[in-house]
Design a protein around this nucleic acid. Structure first.
Lengths: 218, 218
DNA sequence: ACCTCCACTCGATCGTCGTTCTACAACTAG
DNA sequence: CTAGTTGTAGAACGACGATCGAGTGGAGGT
């Protein structure tokens, strides 16, 4: 009819749009509020429509998580394996922290193309450096990063801030904690330097083992 | 009346019974199937009754998680800080692996009495060993353990076993992964030794720093 | 110009969940 | 025996993930 409401020009929904909007929604409201209905609403469609592009909600989460890994830059290898590993892990951490919800989702297989590409890079780097067991080295580094991010996100956003007081009240039970511990944000860069120092421990140990392996059986 | 149906002797529901049953349910069916209704059913009561003893479902999960930490033995300190830290971390890991659902729940503040007691022990041990920043050392160790458990549980139970084949099919994209990697279970003790070796990296680095600090500024 | 087909959309609906409200039963103290 | 406290439970609410079947638009063939 003459005054037909110009029916929206049917810009077909794509998987990319769904994933991008899911990431945005997660960034803004957190993992607890990601709902198929809410996600659909933001995309101006019905919730059931999403199921044409995606099998389950878990698919959306898997895709969103892998999208985060896409933000992790692959460092150069000129500066040696240690610098490459350090930079990759720092970038990995930074990307996860930029999307705190992702920390909660690290308990699923990281099998997306972006995650695999980064893991492959890490293995290549370590194997190329002559590590006898790149598996162990990569495993240690990845574990450390995952644990760090989870811990930081946990304390930063799930802690009502009362932890310090909570522990100080119980200083008789937990003297060491009350003295040295758990007031993490502390300095502005507290988290970052603590992460870097811990990573240095790990890299030092790895370097030591690598040198021993190079000079030992040679 | 003589033949009164012996109306169940009203053994009042206690918080301990709830937590114990929650742990059992989680062990048997996993975190996805823990429901207030199912939990209540196992306790022969109504779901709403649980809310008398507990404020939300999250409380149940927090309590169940802390119950896991109760299984972590506190090692002796005679053998030095390194042995104590190693043993505490191994016990920590073992307890979490015994209840794989707990790995998924490490993204919440570990503020239960059992968790705090273990953390306090770790801080005490490291501070007593003269570490300049026990916070960094404890943080590194805890992060490593958390990451390790999460990764192992993820691959062991959420992976349909097709990962090896999946990666081998894509050996052109991920050559290093296909060669050295990700076929973790490998030997029977693959996970354990990989964990121990990685932990040794970390402890080596820490030991090195501790010695440098002792001889350096002295 | 017509028809067909298929990628795509959506309203209604199912079963389940966490949680609240309110009424009720059992035990305890006086 | 009664009053109050402690504990229990049914019904119900709103929201969720997911399925089903009926629809809609546009591209391609004829």
């Amino acid at each position: 009819m003459w005054s037909r409401p110009a029916k929206a020009p049917r810009q077909t929904l794509t998987l990319d749009r769904i994933v991008a909007e899911a990431v945005a929604l997660l960034d803004e409201e957190g993992v607890g509020r990601l709902t198929m209905r809410r996600l659909a609403e933001r995309l101006d469609t019905g919730s059931t429509t999403l199921y044409w592009h995606v099998k389950t909600k878990d698919d959306v989460l898997d895709l969103a998580l892998d999208a985060v890994f896409h933000e992790v830059p692959l460092p150069g290898r000129e500066a040696g394996w240690r610098a490459a590993a350090r930079d990759l892990m720092s970038g990995w951490r930074a990307a996860l922290l930029r999307h705190p919800w992702s920390a909660t989702m690290l308990d699923r297989p990281l099998m997306g193309p972006n995650a695999l590409e980064r893991t492959e890079f890490l293995y290549e780097t370590l194997a190329g450096a002559g590590f006898p067991a790149p598996k162990t080295a990569a495993y240690s580094l990845a574990n450390y990063v995952m644990g760090s991010v989870i811990m930081q996100v946990t304390w930063q956003q799930r802690d009502p801030g009362g932890t310090g007081a909570f522990l100080r009240e119980r200083a008789d039970l937990y003297p060491s904690l009350a003295e040295h511990g758990l007031d993490f944000p502390g300095g502005r860069t507290g988290w970052d330097t603590t992460f870097t120092e811990g990573l240095a421990f790990l890299l030092d140990g790895m370097e030591q083992a690598e040198q021993a392996h190079r000079t030992g059986p040679g």
